[in-house]
Every structure is written in C-alpha cells, then in structure tokens.
Amino acid sequence: MSRWLPRTYLTLIYLLLYVPILVLVVFSFNDSRTGYEWGGLSLRWYEALFNNRAMVQAMWNSLWLALSAATVSTIIGALTALALHRYRFRGKKVLNGMLFIVMMSPEIVLAISLLALFLLVGLQLGYVSLLLAHVTFCLPFVVITVMARLSGFDERLPEAARDLGASDFTMTRTVLIPVIMPALLAGWLLGFTLSLDDVVVSTFVSGPSYEILPLRIYSMVRVGLKPEVNALGTLLLVFSLVMLMLSQWILLRSKR
C-alpha cells in the first residue's frame, strides 16, 4: 500500500467528522437571523442564551446533575471494582453480567425499565429519578476504568502495607486509593460527560420540576433552526474538549 492513499483517506474522514462541528461554531458567531446565510460577526446568540433565564436554569440543573451523578457513580463504581477485584463471593459472575448488560443494552431499554420502576414505587420524576438513572448508566463505565487500573495492580501491594503494620482501612487510604486515583478521576470525567450528554434516558425519567439542558435543546431543535443552539453547542463543545483533555492528561501522566 502506498503511503499517501491511507493518509488522504484518513484526512477525508476526519474532515467529514469535523465539518458539521466547524459549521456550528462558525454560525454561532453569525449575526444573521435566518441561520443560513452569513450576516457578519456577532455575539448576539451568546447574549440571547444568557438572557434566557429558563435556559440558564437548565444549564445549572444539568451541571449539578452531572456533578452529583459522576460523583456517586465514581464512589459506587470504585467500590464495586474493588469488591470484584479483591473478594471472592457468590454471584460474582452475575454481578459482572449485570454491569455488562447495562453497558451494552440499548439506552432506550434501560430508559423504559427505569420509568416503569419509578412509577411503580411512586417516585416523583425529577432530580432524584434523574440521578438514580444517570448513576446507573455511568456505573459500568466507572467500574471498567477502575478495573483496568486494578488489573495492572500488584496483588502484593495491599499485603505489603498490612505486613508493615497498616490496618485494612489504613491500607485502603494510603495505598489503594492513591494508586487507583488516576482511574477514579478518569472515571469521574467520563461519568460527568455521559450524564451531561444523555438525551434518551433523561427523556423518560425527568419531570417538569427539573428541566435539564439536553431536553431543553431537544425541544428547541425538533422544529426549525434556533441560532441560540449554535452558541450553546459551541460552549458545550469547548467544555467537553477541556474535560477530555484533562482526563487524557491524567491517564497519560499516571502511565509514566
């Protein structure tokens, strides 16, 4: 195979992947009302965005939800990974299987099953139902990230700590957690992003009391074009990019 053919091909596909995003960013600074032709540089859509109180509220709601969902799923996910890694117990395979099913099953299946559960137990749809749902779909990703770190982890390290006089708890605090910290941070960031991005599950389990950003965007873009969405999308893009670079940086640094 000659060298330029694969390179040209790669470049072409990357271009196709990024053109829509570039268009979005460029149009977010467009002064035109119609959203199709160029009307000069302007920040009016950013202004409109921040003057829209419902929108700002949805942003805060989403941020808070993503923060709490990522944190809770990181805690539970890390504990699960530790239990799977350290302990032998009955039903380990079942536990693993359930996590795998959550990760692989179509989001919509998870969404309706959770909706059915929340209605059955009479849970008011809102922040709590969103949190439970988001933690559930983030959980397997955190578990996998932490497990990957633990699998490269020397089994003897916890024993060495115990041998030198550390109790189980002290060992966890001084050895286990510092060693898996990069994975915890990466898992947290992944959970944060997944939660911030989710449309499918949230559509089913959110209520009018707690409007979140993706659903607000969804209701805006279903009909016609809304230039504010360009501005919002650009902001989200920058935000995700920062988060992604942060997580990559953490993972790369820990490998050295």
Partner: peptide
Amino acid sequence: TVFQNYALF
C-alpha cells in the same frame, strides 16, 4: 516480608 516482586508502593 520481602515480597517476590518487591511490592514497592
């Protein structure tokens, strides 16, 4: 104990 693969933190 001195461990097989040292088990240094």
